[in-house]
Design a protein around this nucleic acid. Sequence first.
DNA 1: TTAAATTATGTGCATATACACATAAATGAG
DNA 2: CTCATTTATGTGTATATGCACATAATTTAA
Lengths: 169, 169
Amino acid sequence: MNPQALSGPRARRKSSPAAGKHAAELLPLPCTGARLRRLTRRMTSFYEQRLRAVGLKLGQYSVLVHLDREAQTLTHLADQLEMDRTTLTRGLQPLIERGWVTEVPGSDARQRCFVLTAQGERFRTEAQHHWRDAQLALEAHLGRDFTANLQAQLDQALDRLKPALAEDN
Amino acid sequence: MNPQALSGPRARRKSSPAAGKHAAELLPLPCTGARLRRLTRRMTSFYEQRLRAVGLKLGQYSVLVHLDREAQTLTHLADQLEMDRTTLTRGLQPLIERGWVTEVPGSDARQRCFVLTAQGERFRTEAQHHWRDAQLALEAHLGRDFTANLQAQLDQALDRLKPALAEDN
DNA sequence: TTAAATTATGTGCATATACACATAAATGAG
DNA sequence: CTCATTTATGTGTATATGCACATAATTTAA
């Protein structure tokens, strides 16, 4: 096994006689980022099993839910979704092609403004039913309280991680 | 705001007089998957700020740490990393091109077996220092206990989510 | 007003993710 | 041995992710 293997319980060097007394507090946990990514893969897969009925990826669903009949600029949407602007640029394409979203002119010629079409609005409602099934299935599977706790942890982590990126940039 | 907006506190319809008494337990939480993905984006960014010094993405680092001087097949590696086999196929390419990983012949002509090169081993050690800095910075930023708790939650979620996917497939 | 700075966006690139489909090698049944 | 099955893998396609760089429109400073 590798020293910093990412799975399994805490990897602890077998205590050598001369090992410093302060070692414990310096040893890092296993890679939090890797676990998070791993869980995200599984979780995404869980939702997408249910969203497949409406031909949506989870990311597309998220975008759809943030859209409206009110025009929103690309950057505004990206901020709401907290995703990279350029990711969203490309992510909107399939939604536009399928007729759920359309571009409308804005006051500022630089901006691209997007709205949900009437068809898109109907579709979003349908998609929400499937999302809801997925979410409830997840809560049933993990346990409602567990899920709520997990959410709370994720939210706290999001809170604490936001300033970090803003600060030292 | 959209009914199922993914951010902010629990969206609760303003209680209309005739609203059913059982509504509470049927309302799903906000989208757990979306939050997880959001946190993953930020967390990945956090690590990659530190890994940039060695030119690694977090995913590449994860792969590197699971490699060895002992040959491992693609599928075995994918299982260890719990990632899609085809994702790993492409993810190994840059590591091979940079001379950190090499393919060795296996007994079974179908298999592709991979090992860390000597150079790769040295590099992995260097990369681990940077990963360690990132991990400790994360723990310092989120709080050590908070991070440990988060890990525990993630691990539990991984545990509970694994059977689900195995079962109904 | 005009040039500089800012803002909103696009594009190229590299990677990550996973499904559907295709193929080759090994295995097992007969 | 031979054919069906299983196993290990690759490729095509679609999406997700974000950095670096480029451009156009707006705003601001002089």
